[in-house]
Computed example of a mutant assay.
Amino acid sequence: MAQKIMISPGRYVQGEGAIRQIGEQVKSLGKFALVIGDKIALPLTREDVQKSLQDNGINFKFEEFGGECSMQEINRLKAIGEEVKADVIIGIGGGKTLDTAKAVAYYMNLPVVIVPTIASTDAPCSALSVIYTPEGIFESYLILPANPNLVLVDTGIVAKAPVRLLVAGMGDALATWFEADACAKAAAKNMPGGAATQSALALARLCYQLLIDYGYRAKLAVEKGVATEDVEKVVEANTLLSGLGFESGGLAAAHAVHNGLTALEETHHYFHGEKVAFGTLVQMIMENRSNEELHEVLEFCVSVGLPVTLRQIGVTEVTPEKIRKVAEMSCAEGETIYNMPFPVTPDLVYNAILAADAIGEAFLAE
């Protein structure tokens, strides 16, 4: 029997105004912080972060993130960190900024603090950085030896971000239960290389349930820029539960199909979670899930504004060549698609993509 392994961040802090407590939370981790933030996140948070770090006797340097989580950018920031003798890294912003901060901390052997300003992916809690080429094409997964030391989510900031980002996060979180369930059925290994604990599967299931129950209401609240209890629940699903679920439960076809879709340039303008939502439908077709399950997922996606067709992720001209390319890349060596509980071939994926697209189109036409 494989050993069961579950991993998680050292500490998770979530709530409206949490950013104003960052110094208090960070002071046990280091005395000089390199603060990496993207051009949207830094102006939003700089004042609160600066004051809180100063109040807690922490020195700091702010550095703007270049825009792509590539090895070039990681090395640039690492050099800055070494120059200022930083002893803790703080990442503030979206998924790519946070993945970059995690990678910089890893290569410098330092603790890392993650501050998502959007709830658009499950990147914040994970011991993983997704590395891209400078042009934005998926390159590799950098598996890290530990999860972030601290994840701090200010729901007041998250609620003021564009609603599409929260919805994209729901798309990423939507896959969590289906992928964890597939991995459990296949006795596939999770990210730390063990079997899933019952806790991980329960959290993955809870992640899905929170989306179905509160996703639509949270979307409406964020359209008004407010953080309600619905928003708190969905942010927790998108960030903490999805992160714990995918790492300690495992990834399967939905994320592999996302990676395949990046082969088509027209999908590059769509968010990770939007493509994962469509990948979830593809996985459900591959598994021959029930009409009830499929209907619940389709209904949820349409209610919050997640794509259920290729057209909705930019693929307006669906050709056999394009879909074949996506299917082949989804089945690349080492892809998570091989965690499915049955043999997978590019033909199977090709068929499932076209079937999922047709089902999505038919659902929209009803």
Rank of each mutant, 00 (worst) to 15 (best):
A2K: 13
A2V: 05
S8W: 09
Y12F: 15
Q21K: 15
G23M: 04
V26I: 15
G30T: 07
A33G: 11
L34I: 12
V35S: 13
A41G: 02
L44A: 14
T45E: 03
R46Q: 15
E47V: 09
E47L: 11
Q50V: 11
S52W: 07
G57P: 09
G57I: 08
N59Y: 06
K61P: 01
K61T: 10
E63T: 13
F65N: 03
F65P: 05
G66H: 10
C69S: 08
M71L: 13
M71N: 11
N75R: 12
A79C: 00
I80C: 05
E82H: 06
E82R: 13
E83Q: 14
V84L: 06
A86P: 11
D87A: 01
I90N: 01
G91H: 01
G91T: 02
G91P: 02
G94A: 11
G95Q: 06
G95F: 07
G95D: 08
K96A: 06
A101E: 08
A103T: 10
A105M: 09
A105L: 07
L110F: 03
V112M: 05
I114V: 15
I118E: 02
D122H: 08
D122N: 14
S126L: 09
S126H: 07
S129V: 11
V130Y: 06
Y132T: 09
T133C: 10
E135D: 14
G136C: 12
I137H: 14
I137A: 08
L142N: 08
L144V: 12
N147H: 14
P148A: 06
P148Q: 06
D154S: 07
D154I: 10
I157W: 00
A161I: 01
V163M: 03
L165F: 15
L165Q: 14
G171N: 06
D172V: 05
D172R: 04
L174G: 08
A175V: 11
T176P: 07
E179D: 08
P192C: 00
P192T: 00
S199M: 09
L203V: 15
A204N: 10
R205P: 03
L206P: 06
D213T: 12
A218Q: 08
E223D: 11
K224G: 02
G225R: 12
E232G: 01
K233W: 10
T239M: 02
L241T: 06
S242A: 15
G243R: 04
G243K: 03
G245H: 04
S248K: 05
G249W: 04
L251C: 14
A253Q: 02
H258F: 14
N259E: 15
G260Y: 00
L264M: 14
L264Q: 13
H268T: 01
H272V: 05
K275W: 12
A277W: 06
V282Q: 11
M284S: 09
M284L: 15
E287W: 02
R289G: 00
R289H: 07
R289D: 12
S290K: 02
S290A: 05
E293A: 12
L298W: 11
F300D: 10
S303T: 12
G305L: 11
L310V: 09
I313N: 09
G314I: 10
E321D: 15
V326P: 09
C331P: 12
C331H: 07
A332V: 12
A332F: 05
E335K: 14
I337H: 00
T345Y: 05
T345I: 00
P346E: 07
D347F: 04
A352I: 11
D357W: 04
D357E: 08
A358V: 02
G360T: 07
A362H: 02
A362G: 01
